[in-house]
Structure formats: structure tokens, C-alpha cells
Design a protein around this nucleic acid. Structure first.
Length: 200
DNA sequence: ATCCGGATCGCCT
DNA sequence: GGCGATCCGGATG
């Protein structure tokens, strides 16, 4: 049961703030999936902010505008934005900020809390435990997240985020985002310092 | 109609 | 550290 690993679902208004604040405060929260009738859960230990139209690395950057792919980023906060990357992997974001203002937080890594067997099965057996969920594509695969979850409100099953433990400032590391070529130096990646499930 | 470049991963050297 | 996998959105002709 989700209640064993976290508190109440974070209310949708939790996400009605600047993406960098949400990204930082999501550290320690618990992502829970009951997709496919299997419960998997993990503590969020790494997240990146894509802060608005002025952010050239964002899928909703000014030069791109509103399109079919990024449409949910323009909607209300607390909604899942799931996209396919490199034709192979899925990545989970949470939409942040007011409706009409496109911004989101990419969940980059979680520490497994529940359903490790299911995660192993989905990821393929015989992998080191650490590589189950230490990257955005990996955690999506381990937790059964695909494009079907695009547009889903993250305060209810089958995919939700629960209140977790607070991470104090001294335990939070901040640095540049990974894999982006534009605005490569913006310090918008947040992770729990020293956590083994962080992507690098 | 065609081309290009990814918010990645895993396997190779 | 490098590269191939494999697909789609967006841009250009």
C-alpha cells in the first residue's frame, strides 16, 4: 500500500509555483505507480526544472511555441507531461506554474522503496540494483510509465506523488542540467547529495 | 516529401 | 569515452 512509504498525495496547488522551487521541494517526495495493477514506489532524489518560455532548453521555449507534443505544459499544474526521447525511452515531467504558463520538472531519478521485483522484471533481470531507476528513462521503464500517462493528474492513481521526507538545504546539491546543449550552464538540476540512485 | 536533432541507455573499447 | 538504436516533432523545400 502506498500509505506505507509516504503521506498524503501532494495537492495539485503544490505545483503552482516556479519550476525551480518545485524541483527542489520534490526531493524526498514519493512517486507511486499502480500501472498494470502492480505497485512500485520510489523516493525522488533528482529533478530538473524547465522554467518557462525564456528557457531555451525547454520543449516549450519561445521559438517553438505551443504544439501537439508540449500542449500539456500549457495546462494547469500537477499534470504529468510524458514524452518519448530518442525514439526509445519515456521521460516523466510534472507541469508547474499557472495555467497558460509552460514550465515543468523532469523527474530524473528515484530510490526504490516498493515493488523492486516488478522493477527488475520490467527492466530485465540481472541488472545491478542501482541501475534500476537512476535515470529518467530507467525509472519510467521500471515503473511502467509510458505516453498513456501524458495528461494524468499526479494526485491520484495510477500515478501519483506523495508527501515524503523533507531534505534540508545542506543535503541538496545544485548544478547544470544533464543532456541539454542550450542554456547548458543554468543551475536547475537538484539532487540529494551522495544518494546512490542519482544518475551521475 | 525529406531532413535533422534530440531533457537517453547500454554495450563496446 | 564513443557509438548505435530507433522514432517523432518541427523546419524546410
Amino acid at each position: 500500500m502506498p500509505g506505507l512509504v509516504g503521506g498524503a498525495p501532494l495537492p495539485l496547488h503544490f505545483y503552482d509555483r516556479p519550476a525551480e522551487e518545485v524541483a527542489r521541494d520534490l526531493l524526498g517526495a514519493v512517486l507511486v505507480s499502480t500501472i498494470g495493477g502492480v505497485t512500485t514506489a520510489g523516493r525522488i532524489v533528482e529533478a530538473e526544472a524547465y522554467v518557462g518560455p525564456h528557457d531555451p532548453a525547454s520543449h516549450a521555449a519561445e521559438r517553438i511555441g505551443r504544439t501537439a507534443r508540449n500542449d500539456v505544459m500549457f495546462g494547469p499544474p500537477g499534470i504529468a507531461y510524458v514524452y518519448r526521447i530518442y525514439g526509445l525511452h519515456w521521460c516523466l515531467n510534472v507541469v508547474t506554474g499557472a495555467e497558460g504558463y509552460p514550465a515543468a520538472v523532469l523527474i530524473r531519478a528515484v530510490e526504490p522503496l516498493e515493488g523492486v521485483d516488478a522493477m527488475r522484471r520490467r527492466r530485465g533481470d540481472g541488472r545491478p540494483e542501482r541501475t534500476l531507476t537512476n535515470g529518467p528513462g530507467k525509472l519510467a521503464e521500471a515503473m511502467g510509465i509510458t505516453g498513456r500517462e501524458n495528461g494524468h493528474p499526479l494526485d491520484r492513481p495510477p500515478l501519483l506523488i506523495l508527501e515524503g521526507v523533507a531534505i534540508e538545504d545542506s543535503g541538496v546539491a545544485i548544478g547544470p542540467r544533464i543532456g541539454v546543449s542550450r542554456a547548458a550552464d543554468w543551475p536547475l538540476r537538484f539532487h540529494v547529495q551522495g544518494n546512490p540512485w542519482v544518475s551521475r
